[in-house]
Amino acid sequence: MSFFNSLTPAAPGAPSPAETQALPARRPYYEVAETDGGYTLTINLPGVPKDGLEITDEGGELRVAGKRSNKLPEGVVVLHRESSEAPFELVLEHDNTIDPAKTEAELKDGVLSLKLAKAESAKPRKIAVT
C-alpha cells in the first residue's frame, strides 16, 4: 500500500507520512570488487555512526543496516533541505562461499568497507595426478 501512498500527495495540512510513520529504508550506493582472497564491498553510509550499524550474514544473505544520526538540531529554522533521515539498508545474496568468521569491517568518514573472505572450500584447488 505504501507504493500508492507515496504516489498520492497528502492533503494540505495533513501530516505527511514521514511524520506519522518510520521512513522506509533506502538502498545505499555501493560497489563490489573481487580480490585474490575474496571480495571488497564499499558502501556509502553518510551520517551513520559506528553504533548505528548492523551487519549480519546468514543463510547466504548479507545484510547491512545503518541508522543515521543526522537529525537537525532542535529549534533551528530550516531554509533548504535535501538530505534524508531515512535509514539505509542493503541486502545482498551470495552463494555461501563466504566465510563469515573472517569478514572484516571498517567504517570511516561515512564509508563502510567490508572485506569478505572466500571460504577455503571455494578456493581453486590443484589436484595432482599420480
Partner: peptide, 22 residues
C-alpha cells in the same frame, strides 16, 4: 551532493553529505 541550509539566532549552517572524503 545533498546540502541542507538552516539557521538559529546566531549562525547560519550549511551541511553537506560527502562520504569518504579526506
Amino acid at each position: 551532493f545533498p546540502v541542507d541550509l538552516y539557521e538559529d539566532k546566531d549562525n547560519t549552517y550549511v551541511r553537506a553529505e560527502l562520504p569518504g572524503v579526506n
